[in-house]
């Protein structure tokens, strides 16, 4: 099983780019949650999450983004999800989250989504 990994990188305009790989489930979601909470504590509320290398997500993983998007938006930010695989996107669809989250195909479109 691929190891779960998160990397963060600062882009222009204070946008944080988060790359997630591996399996985001009830075993690993706390690490994702810690990463987002740490960014919020440093007043970073504009987050682009690259899901292209994420093999799997369960509701525990999606719950991290559901729990955080409200805080991001209240602070003039957002959580933009980038390039999920069909399997990962399907979980967001099944949960009825595709209308709540903005999905982007590349970094330029993701950054542009902040307006």
């Amino acid at each position: 099983m691929p190891e779960f990994q998160i990397n963060t990188q600062k882009l222009q305009n204070g946008v944080m780019f988060i790359t997630v790989s591996g399996f985001l489930d009830a075993h690993t979601f706390e690490e994702m949650e810690r990463t987002i909470n740490d960014l919020f504590e440093r007043n970073s509320y504009r987050l682009v999450v690259d899901l292209s290398r994420l093999d799997y997500i369960s509701s525990a993983g999606a719950g991290v983004f559901i729990g955080a998007i409200g805080t991001a938006q209240e602070n003039d930010g957002n959580i933009i999800l980038m390039r999920p695989s069909p399997n990962v996107k399907e979980v967001f669809d099944l949960l009825g989250l595709s209308q709540i989250f903005t999905f982007a195909d590349d970094i330029d479109n993701a950054v542009r989504a902040f307006g």
Binding site: G63, I66, G70
Partner: peptide, 13 residues
């Protein structure tokens, strides 16, 4: 989303 709730979605799925 409004309340920042993270859990309680598994049974629905």
């Amino acid at each position: 989303v409004k309340k920042g709730k993270k859990k309680g979605l598994g049974i629905f799925l």
